[in-house]
């Protein structure tokens, strides 16, 4: 058990020397590797914080000084404590409601219990959740369209030539251009008295989808089109059916390229989402930034800066998750994954 754990941990590059040092293997050498692996990036961050601090104190805006690292720290603490307070309020609300219902039931056994949802405003953490759900839905739908499309056009040179101009034209279109169109179409098509999800959510999601479709389509198609003639010959000699050919040869062969596309798509999706949420008023991080901007209090810039850093960290985390996923599905372990 402990051996297996050690082995798993040592796959993380900077942990390996640490474990070895802890096990007493070549201590001084391993310690210097650790110092390098952790120390250098840490130094980079420190230098950045210093420059940021210095620059921030010399930029004056109508809302006060530009937020430095210290302001951001204070604001993130406030945002978290606001979230905790809000949750406590919600819990208290539900408790009161339960007690009230219990009392009514005791007085009148026929009373039909009504449960109302707590309607507080979404906290920062809720907004992060909304953003994640929106981006992942958009990305998922885009992938479900892009992968089959990429495979089909990758398999046929003619289809590829036919689709290529369309793809190349739509690929560079900004989400801001799509948004008005999507908003109008969603308003016209998505009419329901009791909508399952909000219109703003659908609009943001579709905009994200439209913008992040293309890298996956292109990379999948290229991956499929570059399958070696030898493997195609094998498939022909075996007389594999079209479906078996796709499942057994095309898909696995294209997986490395497909994931390159998926990772690009996800990072685009995350970038597009913030803009889409701002304009569509989807209650996520984008709306948070917009509201703070409109709000214009002395804390606003600090809070927006917290959002900026959160957006960066989440984007980074999403990419790492895709990388892990790629490593676990791809047969080509030797390919450099970055």
């Amino acid at each position: 058990m402990s051996i297996a754990l050690t082995q798993t941990l040592s796959k993380i590059s900077w942990l390996e020397p640490m474990i070895k040092a802890a096990q007493g293997e070549n201590r001084s050498q391993n310690l210097s590797i650790i110092a390098k692996a952790i120390g250098i990036p840490l130094a980079g961050i420190l230098v950045f914080l210093m420059i940021w601090h210095a620059a921030a104190s010399s930029i004056n805006t109508s809302l006060g000084k530009f937020p430095g690292p210290a302001d951001v720290l204070i604001q993130s603490k406030t945002l978290i404590s606001e979230h905790i307070t809000e949750r406590e309020k919600a819990a208290a609300f539900y408790q009161r409601q339960d007690e009230r219902n219990a009392r009514r039931l005791a007085q009148d056994p026929d009373y039909i219990v009504k449960i109302r949802d707590y309607t507080g405003k979404p906290t920062y953490v809720d907004q992060i959740g909304t953003s994640l759900i929106t981006v992942l839905s958009g990305f998922l739908i885009a992938s479900l369209i892009a992968i089959p499309l990429g495979i089909v056009i990758g398999l046929s040179a003619n289809l590829y030539s036919a689709f290529n101009p369309v793809i190349q034209i739509f690929k560079p279109v900004s989400p801001l251009a799509w948004l008005p169109l999507v908003t109008m179409v969603v308003s016209a098509v998505y009419v329901s008295d009791d909508p399952v999800v909000a219109k703003s959510f659908v609009t943001s999601m579709i905009t994200v989808m439209l913008c992040c479709l293309w890298p996956t389509v292109i990379n999948t198609a290229v991956g499929v089109a570059s399958i070696s003639q030898d493997l195609k010959n094998v498939s022909q000699v075996l007389r594999l059916s079209w479906l078996t050919h796709v499942r057994k040869i095309v898909l696995p062969a294209a997986i490395p390229m497909m994931f390159t596309g998926l990772r690009l798509s996800l990072s685009i999706a995350w970038m597009v989402l913030i803009a889409a949420e701002m304009l569509a008023q989807n209650p996520g991080l984008g709306k948070f930034v917009w509201d703070e901007f409109q709000n214009g209090s002395s804390n606003s810039l600090g809070r927006i800066m917290v959002a900026v850093i959160t957006i960066g960290l989440i984007g980074f985390a999403l990419d790492r998750i895709m990388l892990l996923l790629q490593r676990s599905v791809s047969w080509d372990k030797s390919a450099t994954l970055r």
């Binding site: 493997l231 010959n233 022909q236 000699v237 057994k248 047969w331």
Partner: peptide, 18 residues
């Protein structure tokens, strides 16, 4: 057309790497 009754051994093995 190609078929398994005429099996081919290719020069560079052509095994599916996965």
């Amino acid at each position: 057309e190609p078929g398994p009754e005429r099996a081919v051994v290719f020069q560079n093995h052509s095994l599916l790497p996965w």
